[in-house]
């Protein structure tokens, strides 16, 4: 039984650095995907959705990868704090942005975008 445990521990110590690096890389690629979305999407509200990819899955995966490579338990605590703050603040600032834009009278584009044969029928939000 202790043999299996030590074997598991050894495997874990050898595997966690490549695994953490790969997770970080995946998260970073998702950040780029979110950025591409921010560049491509047609209006402000849709760009907000693309930016939230970076804020949720990208940040989560990068932080998870860093946690897998953590050299010390204090680092884990700090990463957990960062994750908590990011989750709380990114949602709040997204909402604040959307609310500010809506209050200022920026109308979102409604209806299908970018498909051939469809025209943007201007339905005001309300």
């Amino acid at each position: 039984m202790p043999d299996i445990l030590t074997l598991l521990g050894d495997t874990w110590t050898t595997v966690r650095y490549p695994l953490g690096g790969a997770t970080c890389l995946l998260g970073a690629l998702l950040c780029i995907v979110g950025t591409i979305g921010v560049l491509r999407f047609p209006d402000f509200y849709t760009r907000l959705h693309a930016a939230s990819i970076t804020d949720t899955s990208g940040a989560f995966l990068v932080l998870l990868g860093m946690a897998l490579m953590a050299p010390h338990w204090l680092v884990l605590v700090k990463l957990f704090c960062m994750l908590g703050f990011l989750v709380l603040t990114s949602a709040t600032s997204s909402h604040a942005l959307a609310n500010a834009a809506h209050t200022a009278g920026l109308q979102p584009k409604i209806g299908p975008v970018g498909q051939a044969g469809h025209e943007d029928h201007e339905e005001a939000g309300h």
Binding site: L30, V33, G37, F41, T46, I53, P108, P112, V113, G114
Partner: peptide
């Protein structure tokens, strides 16, 4: 959303 970002044609239909 990732699929929507990476599609060649921008196939979205925002709604409120």
């Amino acid at each position: 959303v990732i699929k929507a970002c990476l599609r060649a044609d921008l196939d979205i239909s925002p709604a409120l």
